[in-house]
Amino acid sequence: MTETKVASNRRPNRVCNNELNREWQAFWLAVGFLSRVPMPVRIDYSPQLMNQSSLYFPLVGLLLGLSYSLLFLLLATLWSPAVSVGLVLAFHLWLTGAFHEDGLADCADALGGGMTVRDKLKIMKDSRIGTYGTVALVMALGLKALLLLEVSTTALALLLAPCIARLTPLLLMRYLDYVSDRDRSKSKPVAESFSADRLLVATLFTVLVGLVASLWSGWLLLWATLATAGTAALWGWSLKRQLGGYTGDALGASVVMSELVLLLLLALG
């Protein structure tokens, strides 16, 4: 009888430990998915775990932003703000493998050059970059650099923008259908579904970051809400109209767009 009670008491602890271990793995899987940072833990990979990792996108964004902000402060002691911003952007592109920028370029080529949904999805899968993609990429990076120099606190913008912008793809994943080839897409495990509970947790985390940051910038929480919700609504509407849903590239593009919208609002003062 006593042995049965001991075994019964151990089961909840074992389940709890397993859940914590899965969340820990999911976090590092998100780090590895969004950046070149090597994963220091053993990952029991599964499509479910890959999907579960989406919850940690804003947290990973905050950690990336912390590295950008600290690097800018260091570089600014040696060079001008313009040179420092340029070097930080170069570091960002290397650290993330231009992951989201690639999605922006692919979306620009597909939506700008495709006539039918089938054509657009085909162009989006093409690894080559066209005129629309090149122009979009140059304009996005150039505008981002200018806005980072325009905002009152560049280091704070570098810290917060990557975190806040990475909530936008989670909103798209929750409220739109995935329209790419599920059997061939590398984004399939991430994009198949996203639970309302995990979206709520990610949203609350991002709001908390915005609230804390509002101590330095009173309008930041409002700007963050407009950037994420506004971009998700307008970009989501465009994707629904042109493709019937979203793709992995569209999720990446939404991050770049959200960052730019947030920086535009922060530049207002």
Results as ranks from 00 to 15, higher is better:
D44F: 09
A229R: 07
W223I: 02
N17G: 15
L73K: 13
S217I: 13
L204Q: 05
D249F: 02
V15S: 11
L220Y: 09
K122D: 14
S54G: 15
A213C: 03
W237L: 11
P81R: 11
L176R: 00
L208Y: 09
V179G: 07
L221H: 10
H100M: 11
W235H: 14
L29W: 04
V256S: 06
S254D: 02
L70R: 08
P58A: 09
K186P: 04
H92G: 07
G32V: 06
D177K: 14
N21Q: 13
V255R: 00
L146Y: 11
Y178I: 05
P47V: 08
A165R: 01
L222N: 06
M124K: 00
T96W: 02
M124F: 03
S187M: 10
W216D: 08
Y246E: 03
A30P: 01
E3A: 15
E19I: 15
G32A: 02
L59S: 00
V85A: 04
E192W: 05
L220A: 04
G114F: 09
L266H: 09
V37R: 07
D126V: 08
V255F: 02
M50G: 00
A191R: 04
H92A: 15
T77P: 00
C107R: 04
L70S: 14
P162R: 01
V212P: 04
E3I: 14
V6K: 12
L222W: 12
F205P: 00
L146E: 14
